Simulated scan of single mutants.
Amino acid sequence: MARSLVVLLCALAALAASENPLLSQLENIDVDAVLADPERVDAAVKCFLSDTDDSCNTRAKVIKGLIAETLKTNCAECSDNQKAGVAKFMAHIAKNKPEEMKQLLAKYDPKGEALAKYGDSWREKGIIV
């Protein structure tokens, strides 16, 4: 029993000390390569808008799981590189797929709280909503 408790405490300490492992997966995404491939963009948007993960690849599932929290905090836990990638992707969607952008905001920010709080910051990054 004591041994199990020690193992559990060590695991919790390690988890608390590490950065968000899901968020770290955003670090290696080549956003320019994704944006250069309309099929990949469409697949990502389809995944993000879907109520299930059936249409999502592994990485898109991870990102989908982060969207709501990222919107709530304006990507506060993101590295500068991750913030730039998220902004670039969202600016592309806002410019080239405005209806899908509206749907994403309706799904992940239904009360408009993130838009009201961070809208000016988003517009400065080219995310026109």
Rank of each mutant, 00 (worst) to 15 (best):
C56S: 08
A14C: 05
L26C: 01
V41C: 05
S50V: 04
M101W: 07
A60S: 13
S121F: 11
S18H: 08
S18N: 14
E113S: 15
L49D: 02
P38G: 09
L104N: 01
L115W: 11
K102E: 15
D42G: 13
A60G: 12
N20I: 00
D42Q: 14
K72R: 14
K64C: 02
E100I: 03
V129C: 15
K125S: 02
D37Y: 14
K83G: 00
N57C: 12
E69D: 14
P21R: 07
K72M: 08
A44Q: 08
D37G: 14
A68M: 11
K64I: 02
V86T: 08
K117P: 00
Y108W: 10
A33P: 14
E19R: 03
R59A: 12
A84D: 06
E69P: 02
S4R: 11
Y108H: 03
L8K: 00
V41D: 06
D120V: 15
V62I: 13
L66W: 00
V62M: 10
D51Y: 09
M90S: 09
Q25L: 14
V45W: 07
A11P: 08
D120N: 14
V62N: 07
N20D: 14
G119W: 10
R123I: 11
D51L: 10
V62P: 01
A2I: 07
K107T: 00
A91E: 00
C75Y: 06
E99D: 14
A60I: 08
A87E: 07
G65R: 00
L115R: 13
E69Y: 04
A87T: 06
E19N: 12
P110F: 08
D32S: 12
A106C: 10
L8M: 05
T58K: 08
A60R: 13
L9H: 02
L35C: 06
E69N: 13
A94M: 04
N20M: 02
S24N: 13
Y118L: 06
K107M: 03
E77V: 01
A36W: 11
C75P: 05
M1Q: 13
V129F: 15
C10V: 10
L26M: 04
N28D: 12
N81C: 09
K107S: 06
Q82E: 09
A44K: 08
T73I: 09
D54R: 15
N74P: 10
A13G: 01
L26F: 05
Q82M: 03
E124K: 15
K107Y: 04
